[in-house]
C-alpha cells in the first residue's frame, strides 16, 4: 500500500514532533483492541440470533483511533459514520454504551435504541448525531465548522466517510463550502476500496480521493491506514491548520475492509477469492502491535494483560447491556418536537 503524499499548495509537514507518548499510545492501542473485541463478540451474538445487524469496523480500527488521538474529544466536534466504532471508543464511548446500542436498549446514549448501531451521538462528548444516509454529514460538518470559526475558540470539526460517499454531491458541496470559508474542518476518508460491492475504480477516476482536494484549493493527503503514526501525523497537521485559521484539509486513509459490508452482505459473492485471502493478512492490529514493540512501548506481557482486561470489559458490557431494559413502547412518540 502506497503511503504517498499528495499535496496541493503546501509542502508536506516534517515527521511529526507529535508529542505522542507511551501512555497515549497504550491508551490508543487499548481502544483498538476494545473495538476488535467488541466486534468479535457482536458476531458471536449475531450468530446466536441475539443481535440483528452489524457493520464492522474490522480493518479500519487503527486509522480511526490514530485520527481521533490527534484531536481533542471534549473540545472538538465529531461527525462520525456508521463504521466508526473504534473512533467512537476513542471519543469516549464505553463498550457498555456501544453494546446498549447493539441491543437497541433504552439506555443507548446515542438514540435510546432508535437508530441502528453505528449512528453515534453524544452532545456532551461533541459527537454529533448522524444518520444512516451516506454523505449528508459532510456539508453539516462545514456548517459546524463555520459556527466554530465564528466562535473563535480554536475548536474544529472532524468528519469521516467512505470513498463511496465522495461520489455524493454532498461531498462536493460540503468541501467546497468549507474551503471557501476556511472552516476548521478535517475531512477524513476511510478508503477501503469497496462501497458494498462497487470497487474503487467504479467510484473514483484517477489514483484516489486525495487528489480531489486540489480542485478545492486545500491540501489532500493519502496515508496508509495501518500506520498509526502516519495517520496521526496527517491529522495532527490538519488540526494545526484548522486551529490556525488556515482552513480545511482532506485526508484519505487507505484501509482494508476485512469483513463483508454488513451482516446482510457476503463479499465472497462478488470478490476475487485470492484477493480476499491476501487481504486477510493485512490486519492493521498486528502491525500496530509490532510498531509499539519496536519502539519499546509494548511487551508481550503488557499486550496479553491488555487483551485480558479488554475481554473482561466486553464480557461485563455484554452482560449489562443484554440485561438492560428495552425502550418503553410509550416512548415511541417522544422527541418529535420540543414539547413532547
Amino acid at each position: 500500500m502506497a503511503s504517498g503524499l499528495v499535496w496541493s499548495g503546501r509542502m508536506p509537514p516534517s515527521p511529526d514532533p507529535s508529542g505522542l507518548t507511551q501512555e497515549i499510545l497504550l491508551r490508543a492501542y487499548a481502544s483498538v483492541l476494545r473495538a476488535r473485541a467488541l466486534d468479535d463478540r457482536r458476531f458471536v451474538l449475531n450468530r446466536a440470533g441475539k443481535l440483528a445487524f452489524i457493520i464492522s469496523p474490522r480493518g479500519h480500527e487503527v486509522a480511526q483511533v490514530a485520527a481521533i488521538t490527534a484531536l481533542e474529544p471534549g473540545r472538538d466536534r465529531f461527525c462520525l459514520y456508521y463504521r466508526n466504532f473504534a473512533a467512537a471508543l476513542a471519543c469516549g464511548f464505553t463498550p457498555e454504551e456501544l453494546m446498549l446500542s447493539a441491543f437497541a436498549r433504552a439506555a443507548d446514549p446515542s438514540s435510546g435504541g432508535r437508530q441502528t448501531p453505528g449512528n453515534f451521538g453524544s452532545r456532551r462528548r461533541g459527537v454529533v448525531i448522524g444518520s444512516s444516509t451516506v454523505g449528508p454529514q459532510i456539508p453539516k460538518a462545514a456548517g459546524i465548522g463555520l459556527a466554530l470559526k465564528w466562535k473563535g475558540e480554536g475548536a474544529l470539526c472532524y468528519v469521516s466517510f467512505g470513498e463511496g460517499a465522495t461520489s455524493q454531491g454532498d461531498f462536493h458541496e460540503g468541501v467546497n463550502f468549507a474551503a471557501l470559508h476556511r472552516c476548521p474542518v478535517i475531512f477524513f476518508c476511510e478508503n477501503n476500496h469497496w462501497a458494498i460491492s462497487v470497487p474503487q475504480e467504479l467510484q473514483v477516476a484517477g489514483p484516489g480521493v486525495a487528489e480531489r482536494a486540489a480542485g478545492y484549493g486545500i491540501p489532500g493527503t493519502r496515508v496508509a491506514g495501518d500506520d498509526f503514526f502516519a495517520v496521526h501525523a496527517a491529522v495532527a497537521e490538519a488540526a494545526r491548520r484548522a486551529r490556525a485559521g488556515e482552513g480545511p484539509s482532506l485526508i484519505e486513509a487507505q484501509v482494508y475492509r476485512l469483513q463483508s459490508h454488513s451482516t446482510d452482505d457476503d463479499q465472497r459473492a462478488y470478490r476475487d477469492p485470492v484477493e480476499l485471502a491476501n487481504e486477510a493478512g493485512k490486519d492493521p492490529i498486528p502491525k500496530m502491535r509490532q510498531d509499539l514493540i519496536a519502539r519499546g512501548w509494548l511487551t508481550d506481557e503488557v499486550d496479553e494483560q491488555l487483551r485480558r482486561e479488554v475481554g473482561e470489559e466486553v464480557d461485563r458490557a455484554t452482560e449489562a447491556a443484554e440485561a438492560a431494559p428495552e425502550p418503553d413502547a410509550s416512548t415511541l412518540t417522544r422527541h418529535v418536537y420540543a414539547d413532547a
Partner: peptide, 14 residues
C-alpha cells in the same frame, strides 16, 4: 443541499 446542511450545522452549534 449544502445551504440546508450548513444551516443544520450552525443550528447544532447554537
Amino acid at each position: 443541499s449544502s445551504i440546508a446542511g450548513v444551516a443544520q450545522g450552525l443550528a447544532l452549534e447554537g
